[in-house]
Design a protein around this nucleic acid. Sequence first.
DNA 1: TCTATATTTAGATAAATTTCTAAATGGCGG
DNA 2: CCGCCATTTAGAAATTTATCTAAATATAGA
Lengths: 104, 104
Amino acid sequence: MPLKETFKALSDPARREILEMLKDGPMRAGDIAARFSMRQATVSYHLSQLKGAELIRERREKNYIYYELNTSVFEELLLWASAFTADQGEYALEEKKGELHHET
Amino acid sequence: MPLKETFKALSDPARREILEMLKDGPMRAGDIAARFSMRQATVSYHLSQLKGAELIRERREKNYIYYELNTSVFEELLLWASAFTADQGEYALEEKKGELHHET
DNA sequence: TCTATATTTAGATAAATTTCTAAATGGCGG
DNA sequence: CCGCCATTTAGAAATTTATCTAAATATAGA
């Protein structure tokens, strides 16, 4: 929940690439690993980091695990970043400010 | 310019705290260090990381150096994050998409 | 129940990062 | 030109992180 974990998770290029892949829809760990030159165990590690940051969710189906984006944390990030821009009005800021805490 | 550096820079809590401080206006390295329990040399290191990511700029005046926010990179970040949210329409996305490259 | 498959966990290593102390730099004012 | 002040740079130590191999777990289906 705190943004601290979010930034930590986003700091790794491989993890951001995984997120980009998931834009096209849910994927299994094996499918993700197949597109990288890293071991499946390593991909599993990155997935656990992303899951810990709640940037992704897992959905179990048969004996597979599908990973998918969790958009809500991206909205928190959006809110955080918008507080640093000059033109804060462009993003719907005020409505959401109250709902979320604003930790670093 | 690539977002890679941005995420790297934002991954450290101390650096994010520095950014928060700079919301209130430009500060000198010494003033920033005075608010932390870390050495000035360490703060200097963090400032150089933030500067490398173009999240801050320095302005020299007399024999001081003032650090201040550079909002443009935050807008890139905003753009990146908005591509992961369901409701992309809320942020003025289309106008800016062409101007920026969209690397990871 | 047994086996095959998908995935994670454990443990180890290598690389990167943060932090410190001490020394160097650079510019103003006298 | 000199010494002072703010700040950075260098180098080293400690911590964290990413990655690998090998082993463990879980589960579907025969």
